[in-house]
Structures are given as C-alpha cells and as structure tokens.
Simulated scan of single mutants.
Amino acid sequence: MIVGTRDLFGFQRLVYRPRSGTWADSILQLLQTSGHAAGEPDVAAIAGYLSGERLVGRTVLRDVLAVPPGQALIESARGLEVRDAPGQPISGDLETLLRDSLQRALESGKRVALALSGGLDSALLLALLRELGAQRHVTSYILATGMPDYCEEDAALELATQMQAKVKVIRFGEPDFVAALPRTTHTVEEPMFNLHPVAKRLLAEAMAEDGIELAISGDGADQVLRRDQSANYLPLCNALFDAASVHLHPPFVDQAVVMHLTSIAPDPDKQCLRELGARLNLPDRLVSGPKRGRLAPAMDLGALLDRERIRALASSLDLPAPTLQTDTERVLWTTLTFTLDHLGATTRPQ
C-alpha cells in the first residue's frame, strides 16, 4: 500500500520511523504520533548538514528517515520502504500551465497574495496575474530589509508600478531576523547555513496577520530548471508558511509544470523563462540580466550563539570543535543546537 508520495523536488516533507511503522509531515509530529522519545542524533547526517554534503533520506535523528524527493513510501509486510514514483510528461506550453496554476489559486476561495521580489520568477507570475486581470485584487507583498545587497524593494516597486499592481511593503531589519531564528529553526527541523529562510517566516507571518490564506510565490523555478533535488530550501519554505497557517502556492512546483519542465533539457540560465518574460514585456534587466544570489548577509548572532553549549555538543557528537569564525559556521551550529534541543534529542550517542 502506498502511504504517500513525495514530489520530485521535495516541496512536501514526508518522514517516517521504520521501527514503529509511523509517518508524518514533520519530525516533531512523527515523535508525537509514535509516542516515542527523539532518541539519538544521526552523527553522519549532521556532519553532512555541516559540510554541505547532505545525506539523502536522513534527518538529524538516527531512527527518523526522510522520503527522498520523487520517491513513494510503501507499507508492506516487511514494514515501511521507499520506491521510485516516476511521473509522466505533461503536454502543453509553459505559459498555459503557469496560468492554469494561478487560476486555480484565484478560484480556491481563499484570500490570495503574491510574494513579489525584484527577480524574474515572481515578476513572471505578476505579469500572468495581469493577463488574468487579477493584479489589482491580489496584493503583492514586498519584503524590505534595508540591508545592502539584500533588499529588492526598489526593483519590486518599479515592477509593481509598471504592472499597476496593488502593493504592500513590509519592513523587517536585522533584529527581526535574529529574533525569528529560533522559531524558524524549530519549524524547519534541520541546521541552516544562512538566515535567508527567516525572510520566508517573517513574510508568512505578516501575510497571516492580514488574513492572507494563500501565498503565490516564484519559489522552485531555480531548483526545477537546474534539476536540484537536494531539498535544502523548498521544503523549508513550505513548512514555514504552513506554520503561519498560510498555504504556499508556487506554480513552478505544480506537478504539471514540473513534468513539463523536466521533459525538456535542463535550463540553469532559465532561458525558457526569459523568453516568456520577453513575450510578457518584462523589463530588459530581468529578461537579459544576470541572475543574482539571494543569501542573507552576515548578522550578529551574539545573543543566540552559546559557544560553550556548541563546544559541548561537538564533543558529544565526536565532531571537530568549530572555530565559529565564519557566518556560515555560526549559523549552522546555532541552528543545530536549536534543532536538537527542540526535538529533545539526546546528545551523547552510544
């Protein structure tokens, strides 16, 4: 019997405990359902998180496994196991498939908003909403941080003005990011190497406060077109919006769109999206300009960084003591301690 299938790029989480035969959408939910303690950390998996070489199908806990992207969880006489869950190519052009996805969101009966950045992916969705006559009814939320090289307020506002879109700018600075890091980590249930996912949590909470129930976003385009199945970002985004009771609706992750895009050659430069953007009269900077990274800048984690606790944790896991000299290392170890403590994991594996 098929218990559940994880989408090809891991947007939906699915974890399970082979020994107890239980499964859930999150580790904490699984622990509560199975009625067992968290148990020991998975040292090899944790080392993979810290090095960037994630182990597919593993979590921070030894006896909690993750269904890899594109796999199905099967319940049989032998217990729980995973198998391939191949999809079928979908006919239709990209513009039509994306428009259909947006139409479903608009007809969901929920209060809908768009997460608008200054980049190509969300700009395409806004242009398609304009084609559907919805850009003045669906509020475009713009997250303004005021941080150099990490604030796309001006570019997003310029685009929204061009599209005659209804806009709301929400402002969060470094103190807001730092304050939200613990609850963000508790939701994603894994170490993070950068604070960028915190932006998703802040955006989702701001939408929820306004009564937004469904958020359209450009998430997933990069992963699908690069064939990146690492699941190191998309499931985090989904979980963070879900924690705020806002349904995240990224058309680029819709099954029909994914099956269409994966039936053609990988397109890491997103040429297919650039061509669509040109047809929709997007600004040349989006159609022809270089892609820009969106990692958050280094922030002061002094109030959260427990160096003594981190050294003790590294020792208990028999891992090299971190120097904590780089932002990446500080974020990884801080979020690792938050994760294990939140899940109640013992930190002295046998």
Rank of each mutant, 00 (worst) to 15 (best):
H186N: 13
L125N: 09
G109N: 04
A180S: 13
H186Y: 10
L126Y: 07
G79I: 08
E153Y: 06
R104P: 05
L319C: 11
L261A: 03
A144S: 15
A134D: 08
S245C: 08
R6D: 09
A38Y: 05
R292E: 11
P235K: 07
Q229A: 07
D269M: 07
T22D: 05
V287H: 02
Q12A: 15
R330W: 03
A47H: 10
Q229C: 07
F193Y: 06
R54M: 10
D269A: 14
S34I: 01
I142F: 06
F338Q: 15
D267N: 12
R279S: 13
P86S: 07
L295V: 10
P290I: 10
N281P: 01
L159R: 01
A199R: 01
I212F: 00
Q88R: 13
I216W: 10
V64S: 05
T184V: 11
T334H: 00
T328E: 11
L234H: 11
A113Y: 01
G57Y: 00
G277Y: 00
V246T: 10
T145Q: 09
G293M: 14
L286T: 03
A105N: 06
M163Y: 12
L343S: 06
E209R: 14
E209G: 07
I264Y: 09
L126M: 14
F193R: 11
R274G: 10
C272S: 10
G39R: 09
T328R: 12
A221F: 04
G211C: 02
V257D: 03
L181P: 12
L132G: 07
T262S: 09
A345R: 15
A244R: 01
R292F: 11
A77T: 09
R62F: 13
T161Q: 15
S230G: 12
P175E: 06
P197V: 04
P290R: 08
Q350T: 15
L332G: 02
L61I: 13
L324P: 04
T347D: 08
T339G: 06
H342Q: 11
P197L: 09
L114A: 04
D154Q: 15
A345P: 10
D219H: 15
H196Y: 11
L132I: 12
Q12W: 07
F172R: 13
L73A: 11
G79E: 09
G57A: 01
P18S: 05
L181N: 02
R104N: 14
G211M: 00
F177A: 00
Q162W: 05
R99P: 03
L324Q: 07
G146Y: 12
V43K: 08
I74Q: 05
A123V: 01
V3M: 10
D228R: 04
G48A: 12
A45M: 11
L31I: 14
R111Y: 03
L98K: 02
G79M: 05
M1V: 12
